[in-house]
């Protein structure tokens, strides 16, 4: 019981480090020194102490959005395995609950954005709702392709069933699933090439524009929730690409955390070498992810 607890708190503690790593990698590619690694921690501390500003248009729903978003992510984090080891909420079918918790976070964020009555935030909300339509089936089918390999329907079961030997016998399938999950990971976390977190033009933003009106502790909740989402979805990819289980909890956990950092660095590299796609092309990218998932499923059917 203590180990899942330690894993959970470790994830809570380390999640805000991931955006810091991404920023440092981007700064390295841009030849800059970049913001400190722990900048998000400082930001969260600063924001938590501020008095929020609320628009006169907004209602309780606007304040409820960040709270529900954070609560859903805290709950989702209880489901994802930590280096292939089960968490608290690990049961047959937990992956379904995970997807719908992400849906809850998205739904409340979208409603909170619409509550401001701002055209810009409506635009962001519209895009967020649109991309989810393509990302969610891709995500589900990628998980289905993994579940097809055996190990039951709980994420920890699936990932503990995954061994290095699977990468030898089924490398095309696992590569396709990883690619699909990575695209969904980038889209859901509003990273390049779907969304640019650093853009300064509100017309082109997606996630950032939805939270323009939030301030103070609410914004801290949103930033922290976003970091947790990065961790939650990243953990799935890390579990796929790191199937080795040594048997020692300490070694496994250490390797997993390192894999998460490596994943963040990979996101940084992607953001440095790519531009963002035109908004009209984003559904195409997500359909590509869906295609990869379906291909992985078809390949698996023939084995």
């Amino acid at each position: 019981m203590t180990k899942p607890l330690i894993q959970y708190f470790l994830a809570l503690l380390l999640a805000p480090l991931l955006p810091g790593i991404i920023n440092r990698v981007k700064a390295f590619f841009g030849g800059r020194r970049g913001v400190p690694l722990f900048q998000l921690y400082f930001d969260l501390y600063k924001l938590a102490r501020k008095v929020p500003v609320y628009s006169r248009t907004t209602t309780w729903l606007f304040r409820f959005g960040p709270v529900a978003g954070l609560a859903a992510m805290l709950c989702a984090l209880m489901i994802v395995p930590f280096g292939g080891r089960p968490s608290f909420l690990s049961f047959e079918g937990d992956l379904i609950l995970l997807v719908y918790l992400l849906g809850l976070a998205r739904f409340t964020t979208v409603l909170a954005a619409l509550d401001t009555g701002s055209g810009f935030e409506g635009m962001g909300a519209s895009r967020e709702a649109q991309f989810a339509v393509f990302a969610e089936p891709a995500f589900f089918l990628a998980l289905a392709a993994l579940a097809r390999g055996g190990g039951g329907l709980s994420l920890s079961g699936i990932f503990s069933n995954l061994t290095p030997a699977a990468w030898l016998t089924a490398s095309p399938i696992l590569t396709l699933v990883t690619a699909s999950l990575f695209i969904v990971f980038l889209a859901e976390n509003s990273r390049v090439p779907v969304d640019d977190p650093n853009t300064h033009l509100e017309l082109t933003m997606i996630h950032e524009v939805m939270v323009l009106d939030h301030s103070g502790p609410d914004l801290a909740f949103i930033f922290y929730g976003a970091a947790l989402k990065l961790w939650t979805l990243g953990a799935l990819i890390a579990c796929v690409i790191l199937p080795r289980h040594s048997g020692s909890w300490l070694v496994d956990s250490g390797a997993f955390v390192l894999a998460m950092f490596a994943l963040a660095a990979a996101v940084g590299v992607v953001e440095s070498v790519m531009g963002r796609l035109r908004l009209l092309k984003v559904p195409h990218l997500l359909m590509t992810a869906l295609t990869f998932s379906i291909l992985a499923l078809i390949f698996q059917a023939g084995r």
Binding site: A48, R49, V51, P52, V53, Y54, S55, R56, T57, T58, R63, P66, V67, A68, L70, A71, L74, C75, T116, G117, S118, G119, F120, E202, L212, D213, G216, P217, D218, A220, F221
Partner: peptide, 26 residues
């Protein structure tokens, strides 16, 4: 967790009234 997050939100506001304004429309 919802109740916890809501309570945390209340605790962070320390009873100070929020500032009211217009919607930030860029």
């Amino acid at each position: 967790l919802l109740i916890f997050a809501w309570a945390l939100r209340r605790a962070l506001s320390r009873g100070l009234p929020p500032v009211r304004g217009v919607t930030w429309d860029c």
